[in-house]
Design a protein around this nucleic acid. Sequence first.
DNA 1: CAGTATAATTGTATCGATACAATTTATCAA
DNA 2: TTGATAAATTGTATCGATACAATTATACTG
Lengths: 236, 236
Amino acid sequence: MIKYQQIAIEIETYIEEHKLQQGDKLPVLETLMTQFKASKSTVTKALDLLEKKGVVFQVRGSGIFVRRHKRTGYIGLLSNQGFTSELEDFHLTSEVIELDVRKPTQEAALNLNIAEDSDAYYVKRVRYINGQTLCLEKSFYNKSIVTYLNNEIVSESIFHYIKEGLGLKIGFSDLYLHVGKLSREEARYLGLKEGDPKLFIETLFHLANGQPFDFSKVTYNYEQSQFFLQATSHVL
Amino acid sequence: MIKYQQIAIEIETYIEEHKLQQGDKLPVLETLMTQFKASKSTVTKALDLLEKKGVVFQVRGSGIFVRRHKRTGYIGLLSNQGFTSELEDFHLTSEVIELDVRKPTQEAALNLNIAEDSDAYYVKRVRYINGQTLCLEKSFYNKSIVTYLNNEIVSESIFHYIKEGLGLKIGFSDLYLHVGKLSREEARYLGLKEGDPKLFIETLFHLANGQPFDFSKVTYNYEQSQFFLQATSHVL
DNA sequence: CAGTATAATTGTATCGATACAATTTATCAA
DNA sequence: TTGATAAATTGTATCGATACAATTATACTG
């Protein structure tokens, strides 16, 4: 494990274990340097990582403080690693509706940056949280990257498989978010009424090298849809 | 202006001016170093900033590439600087419904971390984008931080005033996001029907030193609500 | 020519040093 | 006690050097 990541993990663990609250002060840089036997640059890098994650914030001349959102039961929108890792504390299951290899739609091909006559995995599934329907998901995976999928993988965590099974590194993703009314089909899968509110998110997931590999459209059950996200101002 | 920020701005400008697309390669680090007469660390810091902003992504052994989302007409959710700066390209106006100093609600006091009998500015306004209702906003500002507001400020950009007029530095914010059905009151202000879908976002804005100064509840017109956001995987 | 090993390219991790800016604390005068 | 001023604290910016890891290009081999 890389040193600054290790330091970041240990600091985060420390915060968890000591149940530190928003605004609580961490030891000063100098102390952390000696404690972790690392240079100033390395510790700073660890702290920058934690700041990016929304775990701490730093104030020059003052110190390093814990940043925490206060509410529970909200799903983090920026995890980017799939919900399975995000929602470990909840009981998350999936029912696979469709799983096959097919030609991508024009839209999917465009987003995945592949030819329309190339192959893609298509996955349609309903995900449940604590027994309630959470969302209806329809995804296209670039088959030349995600070379194999089966029912077992898809009913568990696809992203876990992509990382561990295929050894791919997930990079960044673009999310497009709409609010609208449920279609009849969506309502049926989610156990709601046609015309009810929906949160609709299209996401294009990329590998660390920039290749898009998953274009997904997800319709959320509005009754279960509580999301939070942490923003930071980037000066420019 | 700080050097690495300046470099970041120049790189971003370069991307804009040359209309570089997703995946286009930037000059290598070595080149940027000599071009900007800066050390490797400084250029790297500029690039990290741009990566955080979602402007570029870096691939070790390969290069630095442009990252761009392809869709227009979407509002960035993470700008954190208020919509006025975010939506410069659009015609954004505000109609002030209420503006006064009052005691905060229990909820607002809790979030702003002030006593319930202390003073807060309350602002209620409807915001319009290109002539259409965009959202209904209800905000409490900690009066001991945001010491003064008037109708003119509130009908323009509050955040611009806080930064420039009051000289305060905005830090981070926590967003809580729900989907639901419009109440009669909300529907009336937004020109929609009761029971129509709504996107509802509560945001707690903090100064750079961690003090919360603005607790706001915003109800969005679902017909205008197209948001995008860029996620990055933070390893841990 | 395909496949593999090797070398060159290119970003990342780490150290440490110097100077500096924002904040907080201490000091001292009125 | 108050308020200004100075000093100490503490994170930030920048340089530069070394080693390294991932990718890409090249050379080699069969």
